[in-house]
Amino acid sequence: MERPLHLGLLGAMPEEIGSDLAHLNNLSRETFGDLVIHRGEWQGDGGTPVLLTLAWSGWGKVCAARTATRVLASASSEAPIDLLLFTGVAGGADPALQQWDVVLADSVVQHDLDVRPILPRFVVPPLNRAVLAPQETWFHWALNALEQSHSSGALQGFGRPKRGLIGTGDQFIGDAAVIAALRDALPELQAVEMEGAAVAQVAEQENVPWLVLRVISDGADSEAAQSFNDFVQAYDARAWTLIETLLRRQASAPRR
C-alpha cells in the first residue's frame, strides 16, 4: 500500500497559511526554541489522508532556512517530506499584477545576493546557480490544480494563477525606484518577498522537491506598508483555500 503524501507547509506568518488549525486531525506539536512545528492529517472527501508538517517561520531568509531545515530533519524515515511548499503574500514587481493575483514560482532568485567579483551577481555559491527552478512534475501538478480550481470557481476572489520569477531578499520593499532597479537587473521578475528562495536553496541542497506560491498583497511602492497590513488581515480568512486546492489533488501528486 502506498504511503500517504507528506507535505511540509511553511509560511512566514500564521495569516499566510490560515492560522486556524481546525482543518487538521490528529494534531501534535514539537518545539525547538521559539519555533513550533505542528503535525497533523488533512482528510478529504473519502480520500487518503495527507500528512502535513506545518510551521510559521517568521520573516526573512535566515528564519525561513532554519524552519525548512528543522521541518525536513523532523520527518521520520518512514514518512519523509515529499514536497516543501512555502506560501504567503508578496509585493508585485510586474505593474500588471493586482491584489489577489496568484503567482506560482517557475523560478526563484535571491535578489540581494552578490559576491562579485568572485561569482556573478545573484549566484548561490554552493549551487553555482543564480536562478533555481522547481521540479517540473511538481510545478505542473500544482499549476494545473490551481488553474482548474480557478476555472471551476473554487478560487473565488483570487486572480487567475500565473507563473513567473519570484525574488527573495531580506528587505521589505516599499519604493518604486528599488523595484525598477530590480526589474532592470531581472526583467522577468514578477514578485518580491523575503523567504521563498532561501527555502528553495535548502530544499535543493537536501534533494527535496519545493514550490513557492504567493498572492500579491501590494505594489512594493510607497503604499506597500499600509496595503500589506490591511491585506494580511483579509488574507487570513482565504489562505487555506489555496492549500486545500492542492490537497484535493493529492491522488495525482508525484512521489519521491
Results as ranks from 00 to 15, higher is better:
173 I>K: 02
173 I>G: 05
174 G>K: 04
174 G>M: 00
174 G>Y: 00
174 G>I: 00
175 D>T: 04
176 A>T: 06
176 A>V: 04
176 A>L: 10
177 A>H: 08
177 A>R: 05
178 V>N: 06
180 A>P: 02
181 A>Q: 15
181 A>N: 15
182 L>V: 05
182 L>I: 02
183 R>G: 03
183 R>H: 07
185 A>G: 06
186 L>M: 10
186 L>W: 11
187 P>I: 13
191 A>K: 10
191 A>T: 09
192 V>Q: 12
192 V>M: 12
193 E>Q: 06
194 M>N: 01
195 E>D: 06
195 E>R: 03
198 A>Y: 13
199 V>G: 11
199 V>Q: 08
199 V>K: 07
200 A>K: 04
200 A>Q: 11
201 Q>T: 13
202 V>N: 03
203 A>L: 07
203 A>W: 02
203 A>G: 03
204 E>F: 13
205 Q>S: 05
205 Q>E: 15
206 E>L: 06
207 N>W: 05
207 N>H: 05
207 N>F: 04
207 N>D: 15
209 P>D: 07
209 P>Q: 01
210 W>V: 01
212 V>G: 03
213 L>C: 04
213 L>E: 09
214 R>F: 08
214 R>N: 07
216 I>S: 09
216 I>G: 06
216 I>Y: 12
216 I>E: 11
217 S>A: 13
218 D>P: 08
219 G>I: 09
219 G>R: 11
219 G>K: 09
219 G>S: 14
222 S>E: 15
222 S>C: 09
222 S>Q: 14
224 A>Y: 12
224 A>L: 11
224 A>C: 05
225 A>M: 11
225 A>N: 08
226 Q>T: 06
227 S>H: 09
228 F>C: 03
229 N>Y: 09
231 F>H: 02
232 V>S: 12
232 V>Q: 15
233 Q>E: 14
233 Q>W: 05
234 A>F: 08
234 A>D: 15
235 Y>A: 09
235 Y>M: 13
235 Y>F: 15
236 D>F: 05
237 A>H: 07
237 A>K: 08
237 A>Q: 15
239 A>L: 02
240 W>I: 03
240 W>P: 01
242 L>I: 13
243 I>A: 06
243 I>V: 14
243 I>G: 03
244 E>Q: 15
245 T>R: 06
245 T>G: 12
